[in-house]
Amino acid sequence: MSNTLKGQVRERLGSRHCRQLRQQGLLPISVQGGGKPNADLSVSLDEFQAARRHHERMFDIEVAGGTNETAVVREIQWDSLGENLIHVELQRVTRGVEMEAEIDVTFVNQFRGGVLNVTHSTIMVRSIPSLLPDVLEVRADLLEIEHFLFARDLKLPEGVSLASDPDQEIAVVVGAEGEEADAEGAEEDEDAASVPKVGEKPKPSDD
C-alpha cells in the first residue's frame, strides 16, 4: 500500500531555507538512489504525519513540474527534543521488484524479573516495497531469564524474508544475580573494613 503526496522542487537548500519551509507547514525531503540524482523536495508536513500515523512507509510523490517519484522512507530526522520532524530521506523503489531495507525492532509490554539488553535495534529484510513493514514488534513479556533472541527468532510478515545473518543477536535477558552478587560483595567489603589491621588499635564499640 502507498500514499500519495504532492511535492514541490526545492530551489534553495540549507538549514535556513528548510526552517522557513517548516514554518509554512512544509517538510523538506530528499529522494535518493535508483541511479538518479537526488531530488530535493518539500511536501505537506500534516499529510506526511497523517500517513505515518497509519504506518505508511511507501509514497507516490507527484512532483509539480518534475518527475514523479515512488519511494520508501529510509531515515527520519527529528529535532534535538525528538518532538518535531525536520527532514526525511526516502529511497527510490520500483513496484513489484524485491529490495532490501533496514527495519527497526522494538520491544512492547514491560519485562519483569531481569534486565533486557538490546544489542541490535534493526535488521535487514527483503521484500517487494509494498510489503515492507514499518517496524517489527517483539513482546518483551514473553522472554525468559537468560534467553537470547536472534534474528532468526523474529516473526516476519508474509512475503518478507530475513536478509540479515540469522545468528545476529538482537537481545539477551540477564537475571538479577549479578546485582545480588554486587550487593554481597559490598557487604563483604564493609565487614573487611571493620576488622583492624595488624598493629592498628580496634575502634571503640558504640555500646
Rank of each mutant, 00 (worst) to 15 (best):
E188G: 02
L45E: 10
F148W: 11
S44L: 04
L90E: 08
K155C: 11
R19I: 00
D165Y: 08
K197S: 15
E146Y: 05
R19S: 12
T94F: 09
Q168H: 00
E89G: 08
D207I: 12
K203R: 06
R126W: 05
E190S: 09
G175F: 03
E56F: 13
Q110F: 13
T67F: 09
L45T: 11
N109G: 02
G7S: 10
P37Y: 00
R126G: 04
D134W: 04
V195Y: 11
F148S: 11
S30C: 14
L131K: 15
L132V: 02
G178D: 03
D189A: 15
G175H: 03
A71T: 07
K36D: 05
P129M: 04
A176N: 09
T106W: 05
V195I: 15
Q24R: 14
E100H: 12
D165M: 05
N68Y: 13
F59R: 01
S164F: 00
R139W: 01
H87D: 01
G159M: 08
S30L: 12
N3R: 04
K6L: 15
V125Y: 00
S164A: 07
V97G: 02
P37E: 08
R152F: 01
K6H: 14
V115G: 06
E188W: 13
G7F: 11
V135W: 03
W78L: 11
G35N: 07
G25A: 05
E83R: 14
I170S: 03
T4K: 13
N68C: 09
V118H: 09
G34R: 11
L162V: 08
E62I: 14
K155E: 15
K6C: 10
I103Y: 04
R139T: 02
E98M: 07
Q77W: 02
T67C: 09
D191H: 10
L142S: 11
L136A: 08
E100I: 06
P28A: 00
E177Y: 13
R53F: 00
E89H: 12
L85N: 02
T67W: 10
E180T: 14
T70H: 12
I86C: 04
G114Y: 08
A51N: 00
E184V: 13
D40E: 15
T119H: 04
Q91N: 12
E102G: 09
V72C: 06
D79N: 15
V73G: 03
V125P: 00
K197W: 13
E187D: 09
K155M: 12
L143P: 02
A193Q: 05
F150N: 05
E146I: 00
V138D: 05
L116E: 06
T70E: 09
V173F: 04
K203N: 01
E177H: 07
E83I: 08
K203G: 00
M124R: 12
V174F: 01
V31P: 07
A51L: 00
V9S: 05
N117V: 15
S2C: 07
R95F: 14
A39H: 14
G185T: 08
E146C: 01
V72W: 07
F48R: 02
N109K: 09
E180V: 15
V88C: 11
V135S: 09
I145F: 02
E137K: 14
K155V: 15
P133W: 10
D40T: 15
L41Q: 10
P37D: 10
G185C: 06
A192F: 07
E83L: 14
D134V: 01
L162P: 02
E190Y: 10
I61V: 10
R53P: 01
I128F: 01
S194Y: 11
